[in-house]
Amino acid sequence: MVSGDKKRTAHKAVVIRVLEGDGRASRAERRAAFENAGLGEPLRTLIDKVARQPTRVSDEDIAAVLASGESEDQLFELVVCAAIGAATRQYEAALDALEEAMIDKKKE
């Protein structure tokens, strides 16, 4: 297995673990955090910041989610899923662009 394949496999293992393995948050909620879609407030605000503006996450964002009934462990998992989801969208878009460029190169 070449190095790039091993890394893509390791990436897939991270994604599968956080989305499909055991957790304190439901799989549906973890998937929604990963995709940054379909969440209600106050989770939506926190997860969207993690995905798109992580430096703007505040103590108040965290406190609001905990006050809504999520436990710290659930919040931990959902934030992890949001971060991995946002980074995965970038990673996969870049791998697709690389594939396209390399296919065109073979045609030359």
């Binding site: 934030v79 991995i84 980074a87 990673y91």
Partner: peptide, 10 residues
């Protein structure tokens, strides 16, 4: 891109 987000969120 993952670790940076977690560093700032947590």
């Amino acid at each position: 891109n993952t670790t940076d987000r977690l560093a700032d969120a947590f």
